[in-house]
Design a binder for these strands. Structure first.
Length: 795
DNA sequence: TAAGTACTGGTTTTT
DNA sequence: CCAGTACTTA
């Protein structure tokens, strides 16, 4: 280590030059103290090396469950403990905010809390932090808005309409996807136009749309998700002295899930770890921050978002002299689960061979089940979970994964009926509800008056008689006067509107002004409460006769509660901070480990998590691989990796399930077993009901074409198959939901269930609408049913 | 301008 | 099956 002058322009309290103590030999693995070294105890040799290696570039190839988080946290702790770096000189990038929080906690645990000032966050959060600080340098102001994908689409919709580009086949969705792709490659409208074929009217129209979109974002003082990264790179490249601030601040940059970085993120990393240049820098004094990346190309599942697997595959070429360490020992799963995972992923041809292994033994067999329908499959999952739970397994140790969010419907329906506590991670989130977005648009309009999109959203919400015609007049006034739409509202009285209209506009403007004054002195919840009451938003919902509006008003109350909670956790948090946090929360971020619920999530959301027991559902063609990706180059391979990620989340027990028919858009279609299922050696799976032996209702469906592939399984199935009465499909479940009102049941009563037949009530638990009947059915076994909605009658 | 009705079409994964 | 949209009517 040289005594590099290290400036920490932004650091809090660590601006002085750190004391860099040469203190290495005592803690090197194999040294005298190794046996009692708390940062190396229990690590295998490769893990220990990954903690101790020092050099400019280190790639840790970490197979699933190989303890990479442990390695990363211990490495950071060691850097700080050794005084090789101050906490403020460390930048660690994770994939989700949840992973960031967990990493911070673990590092603090290892260091006894001396971790203040570390930057541990997602790419997006880190970039927002940089951009807010430096916004004044390049034409934005620090109160900028972050547009999520639906905001982008609303904006694009207007732009496409203005250009009459819808007739050319442009939709907000496809234009947004194309722009996003380009931004991830660091292209902008200008650079794209240079290489475009201008004789193609489609191309010309797209460039117009792209340009207008960029212009609109800039004038709204807003960034979309992709901008957060791309604009930070642009900032660093355009202003080397700004880049140098961060190049000098961070001495160690660590990136998790490196296989899922895209080109823009890669470029950002390159900029951050580069040797500074420009005035004031003494050449040769800072070789650039040391870079540590951790990843596994077998878990690359975000190509659709621009992730470029080459970033990790070509790491050694990118960073000459880079050290590579392989972690293959798995500490999570049983050998049966790993063997299945290894067998599946081995079918991806262009990969470096890598085999996970464990010394914990084979464990239980994987359990397979083929349902007659998605509902039947869901019923199986619910029944198994109930069995596991009564055998002592906590609900929060169990997870159910699926490929598409649409699959939650069947699962949810059955889970509600079976009174299973569950939580859907991601999916239609609270923050995506219209009334919540309305409230956020009010907050945004207060924080960032330049944001026209937000002002347009609230201008007639709730209804105050300001229609499209009036909005257009206001907007064109703003344009002519070279001011914002927000300021146009203030001038309403001079614009010649009728008295009613003028009044409505001025009242809104006054509410926004009042809230802005309030925002100066803090309290997010007070600003929000002022806005939603004085704008009439919440009263409009409360007084509405649409029964759903009552729930919407409650959601707004819930949002106020969220802001109060935020204030408790962040006493210094401003309104801007609150909006930023909400804009960047991911689906996986609100998993609550302590709660006693089963977790339901997509395979993508599952990445990085682990559970004792995992159910992988819908393992069918057209779902996994998904229809949309089956024909794309690289599609089936990426879908296989998704399957691999799902399998490797399980510690002890893995279930694979599928259905023979699946409902989509109200119609039911025949489903075929996924091609990936055959890639798992037959002896690893015990089929409760195999795809080969189960026939769809007629028995001679197109599935017969497929049957050959399953013949090898037949012998085993015959033995495992239950006797003949099972043919009556006692698990078949109808999709109708009913309401039994106040049906009274008591132990000893006999009931008839439309699917399960007759049974006897053993017990009734719970209160009111949550009363649950514990029933012993004659053919279908023991079930728990939510009395209010189960398709049952007393007999 | 707002509310109500009839109709279309789209369907993956997410920071 | 749903949400979003175009069209009608008061």
């Amino acid at each position: 280590m040289t005594s590099t002058p290290i400036s920490d322009a932004h650091g809090s309290g660590s601006a002085s030059t750190p004391v860099i103590v040469d203190w290495p030999t005592a803690t090197i693995p194999g040294g005298e103290n190794a046996a009692s070294d708390h940062l190396l105890d229990g690590l295998n040799p490769q893990q220990a090396e990954a903690v101790e290696y020092r050099g400019q570039a280190l790639l840790i190839v970490a197979g699933a469950g190989s303890g990479k988080t442990r390695v990363l946290t211990h490495r950071i702790a060691r850097l700080i403990e050794n005084r090789e770096a101050w906490p403020s000189q460390i930048l660690a990038i994770t994939f989700t905010n949840k992973a960031a929080a967990e990493m911070r906690e673990r590092v603090e645990g290892l260091l006894g809390g001396r971790a203040e000032g570390m930057w541990i966050s997602t790419f997006h959060s880190a970039c927002v932090r940089i951009l807010r600080r430096e916004a004044d340098n390049f034409g934005f102001s620090k109160n900028f808005t972050i547009y999520d994908s639906s905001d982008s689409r609303v904006l694009l919709k207007r732009i496409i309409k203005q250009h009459d580009a819808d007739v050319l086949g442009f939709t907000p969705a496809n234009a947004s996807a194309k722009i996003s792709k380009l931004k991830n490659e660091l292209a902008d409208a200008e650079s794209y136009a240079r290489n475009a074929n201008m004789s193609d009217p489609n191309e010309v129209a797209f460039i117009e749309i792209f340009r207008d979109y960029e212009r609109a974002l800039r004038s709204a003082n807003a960034f979309d998700f992709d901008d957060l990264i791309a604009q930070t790179v642009y900032l660093f490249r355009a202003f080397p002295q700004v880049a140098a601030l961060y190049q000098n601040k961070f001495r160690h940059v660590l990136v998790d899930e490196y296989q899922d970085t895209n080109h823009a993120q890669y470029s950002l990393i390159r900029e951050l770890t580069r040797e500074p240049e420009g005035a004031g820098y003494l050449p040769g004094t800072n070789p650039g921050a040391a870079l540590t990346v951790v990843g596994d190309s077998d878990q690359s599942i975000y190509a659709f978002r621009g992730a470029d697997i080459r970033n990790i595959v070509e790491f050694e070429r990118d960073f000459p002299g880079a050290k590579v360490i392989l972690l293959e020992q798995n500490y999570r799963s049983t050998q049966n689960i790993l063997s299945a995972a290894n067998a599946v992923i081995a079918n991806n041809f262009d990969r470096k061979d890598k085999k996970l292994w464990t010394d914990v033994g084979d464990g239980e067999k994987i359990i397979g089940y083929t349902g007659y329908s998605g509902h039947d499959e869901a019923q199986f999952v619910a029944d198994e979970i109930e069995k596991l739970h009564s055998a002592g397994l906590a609900y929060n140790e169990i997870a159910v994964f699926y490929r598409t969010n649409a699959q939650t419907r069947a699962l949810e329906e059955i889970f509600v009926r079976s009174a299973l506590p569950y939580k859907i991670m991601g999916g239609t989130k609270f923050y995506e509800r219209a009334e919540i977005k309305d409230a956020f648009a009010y907050l945004t309009a207060v924080v960032n008056p330049a944001d026209e999109l937000a002002v347009r959203r609230i201008i007639n919400t709730p209804k105050r008689g300001i229609g499209p015609a009036t909005v257009t007049q206001l907007a064109s006034f703003a344009e002519n006067a070279e001011t914002t739409l927000r300021d146009a509202l203030r001038e309403a009285s001079t614009l010649g509107f009728g008295p009613k209209m003028t009044r409505a506009i001025s009242d809104l403007s006054a509410v926004l002004d009042e809230a802005a004054a309030l925002a100066e002195k803090g309290k997010v919840s007070e600003v929000l409460t002022t806005l939603i009451t004085k704008s009439g938003l919440i009263d409009a919902l409360r007084l509405s006769r649409d029964p759903q509006d009552e729930a919407r008003a409650e959601n707004l109350d819930e949002l106020v509660a969220v802001t109060k909670e935020y204030e408790r956790n962040n006493p210094d948090g401003t309104l801007i901070d609150f909006l930023t946090e909400v804009a960047l929360v991911a689906a996986a971020d609100d998993i609550d480990d302590a709660s006693g619920t089963v977790s339901l999530m997509t395979l993508h959301t599952a990445k990085g998590l682990e559970f004792n027991t995992v159910f992988l559902t819908g393992i069918e063609e057209d779902l996994l691989p998904h229809r949309m990706s089956a024909n794309e180059p690289g599609g089936p391979a990426e879908e296989r990796r998704l399957f691999y990620v799902g399998i490797t989340r399980a510690r002890k027990r893995l279930y694979l399930s599928l259905a023979m028919t699946r409902a989509q858009y109200g119609e039911t279609a025949v489903a075929m077993p996924s091609r990936y299922l055959q890639e798992i050696p037959a002896e690893l799976i015990e089929w409760k009901q195999s795809p080969g032996s189960a026939n769809s209702r007629g028995g001679t469906q197109p599935r017969a074409l497929n049957a050959r592939r399953w013949q090898s399984n037949r012998g085993a199935d015959a033995a495992a198959l239950p006797p003949a009465e099972k043919k009556q499909w006692p698990n078949r479940v109808t999709g109708t939901v009913r309401d039994n009102g106040d049906l009274e049941l008591a132990p000893g009563d006999r009931i008839r269930h439309t699917d399960f037949g007759e049974g006897r009530v053993n017990n009734v638990t719970g209160e009111g609408s949550k009363r649950v009947a514990h029933v012993q059915f004659e053919t279908a076994g023991a079930k728990k049913l939510l009395i209010k909605i189960a398709p049952i009658e007393k007999i």
